[in-house]
């Protein structure tokens, strides 16, 4: 308190000056037309700036609500778009030929949902029981493999992506060497082909195909290229690193592979 008083005492002239100048400004602005016009102009410029700033700031305050409204509107508009509708027409592509018996049906499907990227990925396609989707059917796209159907409902089916740590796919090379393709949950561009005998001669860039032994995928569908080999000491086998042709995380239109002989083969396999 004493310091404040001392401050006022030491700077008395300054405070007197300020107070009197404020009084003078008040008098000038209220009793002189030219000066009051200039002051009003300056004031309106200043408050205009202040108002535009405060409007900008206030716009940010209800950004959350605005977002909510926008998203509701977006959802309403998206419901009107063609791809929001479930297509009951299905183009089942089969050839009737006396010499060939149709083994695989390919059913076009679209991926309508996918789990967030993790070591265990799932997809949902817009085909279900009504079109004969069953657990165990394979999903491919034009460049590679996508996954295997896990569960199906009336209209949709859940697919275990090949980018899932539990995925086991029978795959092999051109010379009929075969092994199991799995994913270690790390790099979505690469999978590992295990259980290849270590005496097999492998060249870099050899193509890896599906074997068709598991009735999930048709035989000879290309998967990717060998980029690296790694002999597993003591097991007599080696692992191949396979660079995938496709990108299972980004694919959107796929084909469901329906094996028409599955039941018949299943009888044999069960014995």
């Amino acid at each position: 308190m004493e310091q404040i008083l001392r401050l006022f005492y030491n700077n008395g002239s300054f405070f007197t000056f300020c107070a009197l100048q404020v009084l003078c400004f008040y008098l000038i602005i209220n009793h002189n037309s030219a000066q009051s016009a200039i002051a009003a102009e300056t004031w309106s410029i200043g408050t205009g700036k202040y108002k535009s700033v405060s409007t900008t700031v206030n716009n940010y305050f209800d950004l959350r609500e605005q977002n909510e409204v926008q998203m509701r509107e977006n959802a309403r508009l998206r419901r009107l778009l063609p791809n929001a509708l479930y297509d009951l027409r299905a183009n089942v592509d089969s050839i009737i030929d006396g010499k060939y018996l149709q083994r695989y049906n390919f059913l076009p499907a679209n991926i309508v949902n996918r789990s967030p990227y993790s070591p265990n990925n799932f997809l949902v396609i817009n085909r279900g029981d009504n079109l004969g989707i069953q657990a165990g059917q394979g999903i491919i796209d034009d460049r590679g493999l996508v996954g295997i159907v896990d569960q199906s409902t009336e209209l949709f089916a859940r697919v275990i992506s090949i980018l899932h740590q539990d995925t086991r796919i029978s795959a092999g090379l051109k010379d009929n060497t075969f092994g199991t393709l799995r994913w270690d949950g790390k790099d979505p561009r690469y999978m590992t082909l295990t259980d290849i005998p270590d005496y097999t001669e492998i060249s870099q860039q050899d193509t890896v195909f599906t074997t068709g032994y598991s009735n999930v995928f048709p035989t000879g569908h290309a998967i990717g290229l060998v980029t690296d080999t790694e002999i597993q000491a003591g097991t007599g086998s080696m692992n191949l690193q396979v660079r995938l042709f496709n990108d299972p995380l980004r694919v959107s239109s796929v084909y469901v592979v329906q094996d028409l002989f599955k039941e018949e083969l299943g009888i044999l396999n069960a014995q």
Binding site: F14, L20, Q21, L23, C24, Y26, L27, H31, N32
Partner: peptide, 23 residues
Amino acid sequence: GFGTDLFYETLGLHAAAATFAGY
């Protein structure tokens, strides 16, 4: 300054200037 203003009909102008000069 205020006294001058009363006669000059410029209330506040001379007062402000005189206050400044005094400061």
